[in-house]
Design a protein around this nucleic acid. Structure first.
Length: 590
RNA sequence: CGGGGCGUAGCGCAGCCUGGUAGCGCACCUGCCUUGGGCGCAGGGGGUCACAGGUUCAAAUCCUGUCGCCCCGACCA
């Protein structure tokens, strides 16, 4: 039996000043964690117990679909060089050398290690499919660790990898994970949404993220209140209201208008009395060429046209151009490409743009498809053009149309047209169809039924263990502390004798705690010689969902009190009944 | 990496501008007292003022540099 008086639960009356988000403050105040360095935390007794509860749930559900491994956290550089990620990961990877000078790194994920096992061992289609998982520390040299356990440099991840003979098999493995993740997050008591996710420039085909809504989160989720549509902002689309185009004027060709000093969409719209929806916005960027020779990074000019009132989503742009490494053009570069200063840029002549001999990549946002007679810059200082119509006045090849704009709240759901909502969320899990990338580059092959060598197709699937804890606290806190769902709380119930100097109270509390424990519950006995206020405040703080108060007045009537942390309501219970009452609460939730 | 802020006792802070004995609340230790919401009284311990260099008779305080941490932006479980 755990007795509070013997335990190390260093609660704080005040939170350290640098804790901002609720979960960070309460993890510190409740004595769950202590910080060792930026983004590096020690888990103390209560924190570790909650982590173990969570990993146990994850393990039980994963064991239904896969096999648990335990892989090294320390990796030789070679395997990462083989997959190409030694370069790609850049500064996000912790790197070190051994005494012989050989390069090593700390694992960020384990595609390479898993694939290196697969390529040595998997020989035949008969061995497929396989799902292998592990629960392990991961290391990422985050540019900016923050928000307590939300974004850290060392964290615990459940990561799994599937190997299948063909895409149909991958679909099955993927769906198994989808279902297992739902069971895991349900059992952890989280309210989550599954969203379509941006699958990155790495060639993955399908991807879902499991998100918990919270203002502490760093992602934006677009969701439909009516149908089931939900997507990461990086991927979301919307149905736009039809915009009325201006009528044809004159000979139907672009016509210059003098717009002295009118450099912004708003200036021009006001000056010409037109709507930004009938304008074109021109974005001029320089992107690093992923295909350039090693050691010679080359920059490609990229020009994107959007509807005047739309804004660019950078993740969508990076998917469209194949690199996330881009920046706005400098003024002299803009002059060189357009022959005009910023503020008056437009699409006419786009087929011939180049910078230092490199042809510009031109993209046109899909919302401009079918529009006509727009207002755009004239590529001439102090002039704009009316009557600009894509494809008539400047060429747009099929591959140049791109989804680049950020969806905004209130736009129509792509499925049903209902106004969409946008909310902040934290990502707790991610499932991802990897395809052939790692198996191909690292040389994993199996023989199929016909004796033909084929590359197995892979999936990769992650869950952030700390983020489950963090999300649960973000969802369930008040001014006194937080309360965890019993399944993941470090203790399910705390038994609190009001005055341990009172022999009777002490023995009743002791007996109740012992019986609860015999009934299979995780019980903490608060046997400290403290005033009741101190014990109540601590108990409210540390996330235990139920408390049994053993006080002299009630005990004299043969009763104790059950306190529900989430609702702050109490109910009396006779001492013989208390075991069943608590048992029922724990079985049926709050 | 760009921008901003902060480093003084375990935690929260004052002192710095205008250089001269390092201070407050909470926590901690001892004793008494108290026991249904961080109780009271008395006594006590704890600081190389992030680090290094400089200016000065004298530096927490002024100057320079370094490091650490937090927050806002670009990246991810």
């Amino acid at each position: 039996m755990h007795r509070w008086s013997q335990l190390f639960i260093p609660t704080l009356r005040e939170a350290p000043a640098d804790a901002e988000v609720a979960s960070h403050k309460y993890l510190l105040r409740s004595g769950y964690v202590r910080q060792l360095a930026a983004g590096i935390y020690s888990y103390l007794f209560l924190g570790q117990r909650a982590m173990l509860k969570i990993t146990q749930i994850v393990r039980e559900e994963m064991d239904k679909i896969g096999q648990e491994f335990y892989l090294p956290a320390l990796h030789p550089a070679e395997i990462w060089q083989e997959s190409g990620r030694w370069q790609v990961m850049g500064d996000n990877m912790f790197r070190l050398k051994d005494r012989k000078g050989a390069d090593l790194c700390l694992g960020m994920t384990e595609e390479e290690v898993m694939t290196s096992i697969a390529r040595r061992e998997l020989r035949s289609y008969k061995q497929l499919p396989q799902i292998w998982y592990q629960i392990q520390s991961k290391f990422r040299d985050e540019p900016r660790p923050k928000s307590g356990l939300l974004r850290v440099r060392q964290f615990t991840m459940k990561d799994s990898y599937s190997f299948d003979l063909d895409p149909a098999g991958l679909d099955v493995s993927y769906q198994k994970h989808y279902d297992a993740y739902c069971r895991i997050f349900d059992r952890c008591g989280l309210r989550y949404v599954v969203v379509e996710a941006h699958s990155g420039a790495m060639g993955g085909s399908q991807s879902h993220e499991f998100m918990v809504y919270t203002d502490a989160g760093e992602d934006f989720v677009v969701s439909c209140p009516n149908c089931r549509y939900a997507a990461n902002l990086e991927k979301a689309t919307s149905r736009l209201d039809v915009v009325e185009d201006y009528p044809d004027v004159g000979d139907g060709k672009p016509a210059p208008v003098h717009t002295p000093g009118m450099k912004t969409i708003e200036d021009v719209a006001k000056f010409l009395d037109v709507s930004p929806k009938n304008k074109m916005k021109t974005l001029a960027l320089m992107a690093t060429d992923a295909e350039a020779e090693a050691g010679k990074p080359r920059e490609i000019p990229v020009v994107a046209f959007l509807r005047g009132d739309h804004s660019l989503n950078e993740a969508k742009l990076s998917a469209a151009i194949g690199t996330a490494d881009f920046r706005p053009m400098r003024p002299e570069e803009i002059e060189a490409v357009f022959g005009s200063p910023a503020g008056f840029l437009g699409p006419i002549g786009s087929e011939n743009w180049h910078y230092q001999g490199i042809k510009a990549k031109v993209l046109v946002e899909r919302a401009l498809l079918g529009r006509k007679n727009l207002i755009a810059g004239a590529n001439r200082e102090d002039y704009h053009l009316r009557n600009v119509t894509p494809q008539r006045d400047f060429p747009v090849a099929n591959h140049q149309w791109a989804d680049l704009r950020a969806v905004e709240a209130g736009e129509g759901c792509p499925n049903c047209g209902t106004p969409l909502k946008v909310a902040k969320a934290v990502e707790i899990g991610h499932i991802f169809k990897l395809g052939y990338k790692y198996a191909e580059s690292m040389g994993a092959r199996v023989l199929d039924k016909d004796g033909k060598e084929v590359v197995p197709i892979m999936g990769s699937y992650g869950i952030g263990i700390e983020r489950i804890l963090t999300a649960a606290i973000e969802e369930n806190h008040d001014s006194d502390g937080f309360f965890l769902p019993p399944q993941i709380a470090p203790f399910e119930v705390v038994v609190t004798p009001i005055n341990v100097a009172d022999e009777k109270l002490r023995s009743v509390a002791q007996e109740i705690a012992a019986k609860l424990q015999q009934a299979g519950h995780d019980v903490l006995l608060d046997d400290r010689d403290e005033r009741p206020g101190v014990k109540f405040k601590d108990a409210d703080l540390v996330g235990i969902p139920f408390r049994v108060n053993v006080g002299s007045k009630k005990v004299a009537e043969g009763k104790v009190e059950v306190f529900h942390r989430s609702t702050r309501k109490s109910e009396d219970a006779s001492i013989p009944e208390i075991i069943d009452i608590v048992g029922n609460l724990l079985r049926h939730g709050q």
